[in-house]
Simulated scan of single mutants.
Amino acid sequence: MNAWTFGPFVLTSSMLIIVAAIVVGYAVMRFRLQNALPAGSSYDRAFEVVLIWLLVWKLSIVLFNPQGVIDNPMTLLYYSGGSKGAWIAVLLAAGYVWYKDRKSPYKAVYIDAWLISIIAGYTTYRLLAAVVQDGHAVTNGAAVAIGIATIVLWWIREPQAGRKTMHAVFISFVIAHALLSSLAMSTWEKSAGAVAQDAEGTPVGIGIGQRAPDFELLTLDGQKVKLSDFRGKKVLINFWATWCPPCRIEMPIMQQFYSQQKDNNVVILSVDATHTELNSSIVESFVNHWGLTFPVVLDADGQVGKTYQVAAYPATYTLDENGIIRKKHQGAMDEEMLKKAIR
């Protein structure tokens, strides 16, 4: 998990990738419009759309968790409306574009530029994700190839061409990626592995689809706890520290989620970065203050955090019943994220 901490804020590689994709998409849009619009014409709707999308997505947490925002306004810094908020933001942003451009004589040109910018931005995202994050080389390579081919085919046609053509190309792009994802999950990604293997021949590592490295740590009362003790259950390994502001906001949500799911074969294994704490008494006070009932273990020398490449807190790994890593998340998680993680 590539991440950098700036005070209470965490900047992750995924955030940088998204920003880069937006920048590339915007540049492609401007270049596409440059020769299609009359001299002196300008179209800066993209800035407005990004701003509207971000504001709606971020503030939509108020719709889904108003009491949490009232109880702790800092929630607005670390949470958003999640996937539901993102779709609300997309609909409002799209509605704004339609309303502002509905009577423009260049509406077809604008639609053309928007669609190719989306394809360019998405292709950039997949390319950078393949380089920086975990992912199967064949899947990401094929996705990037499809994107580049689509952009080339799109670019050779005139922006003023009929809407049916541009819509057909865009729909074909979406279908191609859907088929690629389906094939990837059912065929070649099943064989993704690592150099190390356990006694059962399963690849061991911290990548998606690999078995999480086992470890043994002590609880606050001195009991030994091994990750493999929870084999047969879905496990959320949560790395945190008492001095971490987003961890303090996330922890009561974790406890509430655990109270609801502990009878559904779900466990939260909370790994405190004890090597960064003044002493373990602070951790004990924190646990008592929030009434945490899930297992809390102490990473006294920081070796487990290093093994899992935790660069910033909080960070969470989701494991299935066989100890296989299914998801990784950098930053605070809300209830919706936690529910999605264990599906």
Rank of each mutant, 00 (worst) to 15 (best):
F257W: 09
Q256A: 14
A194Q: 01
R248Q: 12
Q256M: 11
E284H: 06
N238R: 00
N279T: 04
Q260F: 03
Q197D: 02
K234W: 03
G205I: 12
L236C: 08
Y258I: 05
V204I: 13
M251Y: 01
V225R: 07
W243I: 08
P252N: 04
S280K: 14
I249E: 15
Q223F: 02
A273P: 01
Q197S: 14
E284N: 12
A212C: 04
S280T: 14
Q210E: 15
S281Y: 07
P213G: 10
L278A: 13
E250A: 03
E250M: 03
G207R: 14
G205P: 13
V271G: 01
A192K: 13
D221C: 01
R248C: 05
P203E: 03
D263N: 11
D272S: 05
G201E: 05
D272K: 00
N279A: 06
F286T: 02
T202Y: 05
L227R: 00
A241E: 10
W243E: 01
G207E: 14
F230H: 12
Q255E: 14
A273H: 05
V204T: 10
K224H: 10
N238I: 00
W243P: 10
T274R: 11
A196N: 07
N265Q: 00
F230I: 08
H275P: 06
E284T: 05
C244W: 07
D214L: 09
E284I: 02
Q197Y: 11
F215A: 01
L218F: 05
T274Y: 05
K233T: 08
T242M: 10
M254Y: 12
D221E: 13
K262G: 08
I206L: 02
L236S: 06
K190I: 13
Q197F: 13
P245G: 10
L278W: 10
A192D: 15
D229R: 05
L217G: 00
Q256S: 15
G205V: 09
P203D: 07
V271F: 07
G222M: 09
G207D: 15
I206T: 15
V267W: 00
P203G: 05
V283P: 04
E250C: 01
Y258E: 04
A273S: 06
K262L: 04
E284D: 12
T242G: 03
A192C: 06
E277Q: 08
C244N: 05
I206Q: 11
F286M: 04
Q197M: 09
N279E: 11
A192H: 15
S285I: 04
G232Q: 07
S259E: 15
G193P: 09
